[in-house]
């Protein structure tokens, strides 16, 4: 914890702010909602890391996807991710977003979340303990310091591919593309 270090503050205040103030939008699709309340309330107190839950993706900069992702909820996940302002980070929580987990052979579950949106970190386990969220957060800190948490940049650069993957899974999307897709921007 180097929040008190003035030197770093002066160097890059924005980055420091990014690090120590994660406003999280939880996307609790299936499992995992049970782990969140103890994390943010008195038992584990996520607020001491500056992590607080917010209600809308407009205010958030950390996207926590817990539990399996069905095709139906993928639509909402993409929509929420696109509405979050840059810079934003995504963390998949549990094994299901990584590889489908115990639903690996389900017809209706998304197996690899990072085909559709960029994911900066994974928390493996079924289910992971609430402490592991903090481990993920501290990992993100080091990643931000080293400039490795660049999921949102990747999304912008490879938006065409992501959009193609999304439309493969969901059919035609109702909303217009976030970034320009097409020949003229190639």
């Amino acid at each position: 914890m180097d929040r008190g270090s003035i030197k770093k503050w002066l160097k890059a205040p924005g980055k420091m702010g990014q690090k120590y103030s994660f406003w999280v939008v939880y996307f609790c699709t299936g499992c995992g909602i049970i782990e969140i309340p103890p994390t943010i309330t008195s038992r584990w107190d996520a607020e001491r890391f500056g992590v607080i839950p917010v209600a809308t993706p407009r205010q958030a900069n950390l996207f926590l996807i817990t539990g399996y992702v069905s095709v139906k909820t993928l639509r909402a996940i993409i929509r929420t991710y696109e509405q979050m302002p840059d810079p934003k980070y995504t963390v998949g929580f549990g094994s299901c977003p990584i590889n489908g987990g115990m639903y690996w052979d389900s017809y209706n579950t998304i197996k690899h979340l990072d085909k559709y949106i960029p994911v900066d970190g994974w928390i493996a386990g079924c289910m992971p303990r609430p402490e592991s969220i903090f481990i993920a957060v501290t990992h993100l800190w080091t990643m931000i310091d080293k400039g490795m948490a660049t999921g949102y940049i990747k999304y912008r650069e490879k938006y065409k591919n992501y959009r193609k993957n999304q439309e493969e899974a969901l059919g035609k999307l109702e909303w217009p593309p976030l970034y320009p897709v097409g020949d003229k921007n190639e």
Partner: peptide, 14 residues
């Protein structure tokens, strides 16, 4: 952003 790009709990509302 456009007017229809609005927070609607992850949905797109026309």
């Amino acid at each position: 952003v456009n007017q229809d790009d609005n927070y609607a709990a992850g949905l797109f509302v026309p």
